[in-house]
Design a protein around this nucleic acid. Structure first.
Length: 488
RNA sequence: GUCUCGUUCGUCUAGCGGUUUAGGACGCCGCCCUCUCAAGGCGGAGAUCACGGGUUCAAAUCCCGUACGAGACGCCA
């Protein structure tokens, strides 16, 4: 059997973390099984679907590196032999209508004339009477005359699928094993809306079959749809794909991850300076693991090691702190060229290093590589190299410059540095230590004021390299200026 | 309310009947390294495996209940 899986988002907003994870598991499964990963756009919600959202989904997927083998492409072209990949276009092509007509003709579906208001009242009443709020199938008993009468009144019907009411529907879920539903708990769901578009439960079945999906990997919020979809497959005489329901991602409060939890758009993570590889690695580990609990995966390793049997049945809480750690870990593993390329847009955005020589900027970035957790914090950490004046941290002044010996330390260091012909790391270090020794100061009593004087803060890169990169002129200027801030 | 699914350190997880004093990771704490901050190294605290019954010589692991949690119940997907 050819392995074919899909990610089928509805374009009603940005691609979010939950959606990305579903896409990722499908992608990894396809890669691992040497199958095809298909993108299908489920835009049958006429009110909410937008092309803008489709573009946002493309952006998110491409940034995350989840390239699809089939589907619509951002440049407007189409890849794959099962086009169209937009459901609205498929609907316009009459693809769904054909099967609607077939089910109608076979008596497996019927017209329902209930208005949204009537349905809402029915639900409200059912809840009040503590009954399940489901459609009771009343329109299935309408005679032809009654239907004509309602149409004469100007009512437009929806089409509902006639669910079996007895027996049970059982399917074998790849992740959960056997799942059984009593058919009495199913209900006659709408398969075609008044406007002529199919509903999700119907369109997904038709397309998954027509596009020859071998497996359906989706969130377990779809589990209760599954028996009804299976009944539609059967009514059409089709075999259903293998089902696999992923556990949900939860927020810290234990409910399904939503916007207020940080289920923010994938692009927002990009803006916040996360690396796509790190986000993907983190997401892969939410609800999935290898037998040895491996944490960090080299490029291509996830694709190789993914095994759907490692999927967790229970939901996972999204932990931004671990994501942050992982992002930092990925940043530490980057070569300077990689890091520079990734950081450049963030640096340019702030304008802190405008016109700075590339090789020089790389050296500066490298100085604090082990400190970065996101790309976004790089400009702030390196900006003191490029500003005219040092921006001092108040606490640093208080702690370091107010020391009795600060002024003495700076003065002696200035004298030493002025005399230095070779202003590079090791001579600077020797000169600084000499200054300390000659004045009976501990190294720290000199190092710390110098550090604050040139950088404005107490925590920064290794001192002497920093001074070397900064250059003699700037260092001396800053040391002089700092003298003003010291208590005598 | 009904149905479905789930339940191992705070969090992500390993574990698929004996090798378990329940392993790893994040976070937390301590020590080392050290010019600061990080990073790194080492160590520590942290889980009566939700609870109660069974099955078995033996259960975190199998079965049944209970509790709790989540999801679904749309002319949304």
């Amino acid at each position: 059997m050819k392995i074919r899986v899909r990610f089928a988002p509805s374009p009603t907003g940005h691609l979010h973390i939950g959606g990305l994870r579903t896409a990722l598991f499908n992608y990894l499964f396809a890669k691992k099984e040497k199958g095809a990963f298909i993108l299908r756009i489920e835009d049958t919600d006429e009110e909410r679907s937008t092309q803008e959202s489709v573009n946002a989904i493309y952006d998110g997927m491409i940034w995350a590196g989840l390239n699809w083998d089939e589907g619509p492409m951002p440049d407007g072209s189409i890849k794959g032999d099962y086009a169209p990949y937009y459901q609205a276009a498929r609907s316009d092509a009459g693809i769904y209508q054909k099967y609607i007509d077939q089910l109608l003709a076979e008596g497996k579906a019927y017209k329902c004339y209930c208005t949204p208001k009537e349905l809402e009242d029915m639900r409200a009443q059912a809840i009040a009477e503590k009954r399940p709020p489901r459609y009771d199938g009343r329109c299935s008993r309408l005679t032809l005359e009654q239907q004509k009468e309602l149409e004469a009144q100007g009512r437009r019907p929806v089409i509902r699928f006639k669910m079996p009411k007895e027996g049970e529907t059982v399917f074998n879920d790849l992740i959960r094993g056997e799942v059984r539903f009593a058919n009495k708990d199913l209900y006659d769901l709408v398969i075609q809306k008044t406007g002529g578009y199919p509903t999700y439960n119907f369109a997904a079945v038709i397309d998954d079959h027509l596009m020859e999906m071998s497996h359906i990997i989706r969130g377990d919020d779809h589990i209760s749809n599954t028996p009804m979809q299976i009944r539609i497959y059967e009514a059409l005489g089709w075999k259903h794909p293998i089902m696999a329901h992923l556990s949900m991602i939860h927020g810290p409060d234990g409910t399904k991850l939503s916007k207020r939890h940080g289920d923010t758009s994938v692009i927002e993570y990009k803006k916040q300076g996360y690396l796509p590889q790190a986000l993907i690695n983190y997401l892969a580990l939410l609800g999935w693991s290898t037998p040895d609990s491996q944490q960090i995966f080299a490029p291509g390793e996830l694709e190789e090691k993914f095994d759907i049997r490692g999927c967790q049945k229970s939901p996972a809480v999204f932990d931004p702190v671990k994501l942050l750690w992982m992002n930092g870990d990925y940043m530490r593993r980057m070569t300077i060229d990689e890091l520079y390329a990734a950081a450049k847009p963030f640096i340019d955005e702030t304008g802190v290093a405008q016109g700075v020589d590339e090789e020089y900027l790389k050296k500066i970035i490298l100085l604090e590589q082990e400190k970065y957790k996101t790309l976004k914090e790089i400009p702030e950490l390196i900006s003191f190299f490029f500003t005219d004046k040092v921006v001092f941290d108040e606490a640093a002044i208080e702690k370091v410059f107010k020391a009795e010996t600060a002024s003495l330390a700076l003065k002696s260091v200035i004298a030493k540095y002025e005399a230095l012909a070779d202003f590079t790391e090791f001579p600077i270090e020797a000169a600084t230590k000499e200054a300390a020794k000659e004045n009976g100061l501990k190294n720290g009593q000199v190092f710390h004021p110098v550090r604050v004087a040139v950088s404005g803060r107490t925590n920064g890169p290794t001192l002497f390299k920093m001074l070397e990169y900064m250059g003699k002129d700037m260092v001396l200027k800053r040391l002089e200026a700092a003298l003003e801030l010291c208590s005598k």
